[in-house]
């Protein structure tokens, strides 16, 4: 059994096959460019405090929706234009987890931040990004 749901595991495997730190960074930057902000049908500014990710200096917000088949849709807003890492994580999680069952999404723990970004993140950044993952899980338990 793999550590993460299949599509997310594929991204983790791909990033961990990168040759060096620069390649990993380029890979993540490309994902950050795919980031899409939550649509106005889901949420409007000012975004509710309950959706804000604690500790994330990039001012990130998370919404989760679960349909009648218990399939999850994730939505994100990263309000800091320089929050590239947060955007990359948001794009990766949307691409790989949207449409998965809630119980599957719930198995993803904050290790994913380490597995994607490597061990070179500062503690603050690490807390912010793991905060995004924890916020998703927190919302799914509500």
């Amino acid at each position: 059994m793999t550590k993460y749901p299949q599509k997310l595991q594929a991204i983790v495997d791909e990033i961990n096959s990168t040759f060096d730190r620069n390649e990993r960074i380029q890979f993540l930057i490309e994902y950050s460019e795919k980031y899409e902000k939550v649509s106005e049908e889901i949420a409007n500014k000012p975004y509710p405090e309950e959706n804000r990710v604690e500790y994330c200096e990039s001012d990130a917000y998370v919404w989760t929706a679960v349909d009648q088949n218990k399939r999850v849709q994730l939505y994100f807003a990263v309000e800091n234009p320089s929050g590239i890492s947060a955007k990359a994580l948001a794009a990766i999680l949307s691409e790989s987890l949207n449409g998965e069952k809630a119980e599957t999404v719930f198995t993803v723990n904050s290790d994913i931040v380490f597995d994607l970004f490597g061990n070179e993140l500062s503690m603050g950044k690490n807390l912010g990004l793991t905060g995004i993952v924890n916020k998703i899980k927190h919302q799914l338990t509500l």
């Binding site: 930057i29 970004f117 950044k125």
Partner: peptide, 9 residues
């Protein structure tokens, strides 16, 4: 930076 992706972007 704090964000390790910024410089390369």
């Amino acid at each position: 930076n704090e964000d390790p992706l910024l410089y390369s972007s």
